Amino acid sequence: TRVETATETAWISLVTALHLVLGLSAVLGLLLLRKQFPAHYRRLRHALW
């Protein structure tokens, strides 16, 4: 049972790390898009919101 708990903890930390990386890359991508293609960014924002 101890090994299972350790594996679960590892999976949870892995998933958390993946979510963090995905969130950060999404934010960075949006910032880059905003900087380089303001028109595209505006259109995207209108489409999303």
Rank of each mutant, 00 (worst) to 15 (best):
Q36S: 09
A39S: 06
I12W: 00
V27Y: 07
W49Q: 15
L30P: 08
R34E: 01
A10W: 15
A47C: 09
V3W: 00
L32M: 14
H46Y: 06
V21Q: 00
Q36K: 15
I12E: 02
E8Y: 13
T5R: 02
W49Y: 06
L31N: 11
T16N: 02
A10P: 04
T9N: 10
Y41S: 06
L28D: 01
R43H: 15
V27L: 11
L20M: 04
T9I: 09
V3I: 09
A17Q: 01
T7V: 08
W11N: 12
T7P: 11
A26I: 13
A10I: 14
W11E: 04
T5I: 05
K35Q: 12
Y41D: 02
L30I: 10
A10Y: 10
H40Y: 15
I12T: 13
G29Q: 01
H19D: 00
L14M: 12
K35T: 14
V27E: 00
L18M: 07
R45W: 09
I12F: 13
A6N: 10
L14D: 01
E4I: 03
A47M: 11
E8R: 08
A47H: 07
S13D: 08
V3G: 01
Q36E: 12
G23A: 05
A26R: 02
L31H: 10
R42P: 08
T9M: 06
A39F: 06
L44I: 08
E8Q: 03
E8N: 00
T5C: 01
K35V: 12
L44S: 02
K35S: 12
L33N: 01
W11G: 09
W49A: 12
R45F: 12
F37R: 06
V21N: 04
R34W: 15
R45P: 05
L24E: 00
T7Q: 12
R34Y: 11
L32G: 14
H40T: 13
A47V: 07
S25F: 07
W11C: 03
I12G: 06
P38K: 13
E4P: 02
L48M: 08
L28W: 14
R2D: 13
L24I: 07
A47P: 04
V3C: 03
R34D: 00
V21T: 06
Q36N: 11
R34H: 05
L33R: 02
L14C: 05
L22T: 08
W11K: 09
K35C: 14
L28Q: 01
A26C: 12
W49F: 12
P38V: 15
A39M: 03
A39K: 12
L33H: 12
R45C: 13
R43C: 08
L48V: 10
L44H: 01
L24S: 02
A17Y: 06
Q36G: 11
R43Q: 14
E8C: 01
L31R: 07
V27A: 07
L33V: 11
L18E: 03
A26V: 06
P38E: 14
L30Q: 04
T16C: 12
R2M: 13
Q36R: 15
S13I: 11
L33S: 05
R34I: 14
V21P: 00
R43P: 03
H19P: 12
T1W: 03
A39P: 12
A47R: 08
A6I: 03
F37W: 13
L31I: 13
L20I: 09
P38G: 15
V3S: 01
G23Y: 02
H46V: 12
A47K: 09
Y41N: 06
T1F: 12
L18K: 04
L22R: 01
F37T: 04
L44Y: 02
F37E: 02
V27D: 01
S13C: 10
T9G: 11
L14N: 02
R2Q: 10
H46K: 06
G23K: 04
V21I: 08
L32R: 07
L30H: 05
L30G: 11
T5H: 12
A47F: 14
L33A: 11
T7W: 06
L18G: 05
S25A: 06
R2C: 11
L32H: 13
R34A: 12
A47E: 05
L30C: 12
S13Q: 06
T5G: 02
T7S: 11
R42A: 10
H46S: 12
R45M: 12
V15K: 13
R42N: 11
P38M: 15
A39W: 03
A26M: 15
T5V: 03
F37N: 08
W11D: 04
G29I: 10
L48A: 08
W11F: 12
R42M: 08
A47I: 11
R43Y: 06
L14Q: 00
V3M: 03
T9W: 13
A39N: 11
A39I: 10
L18H: 00
Q36P: 04
L33W: 12
A6E: 07
A17C: 11
R43V: 05
L22K: 02
A26S: 03
F37L: 15
V27K: 01
H40C: 15
L33Q: 00
R34S: 09
S25C: 04
H40D: 04
A26H: 01
L22H: 00
V21W: 06
V3Q: 01
E8S: 07
K35M: 12
R34V: 13
T7I: 08
E4K: 01
L20Q: 02
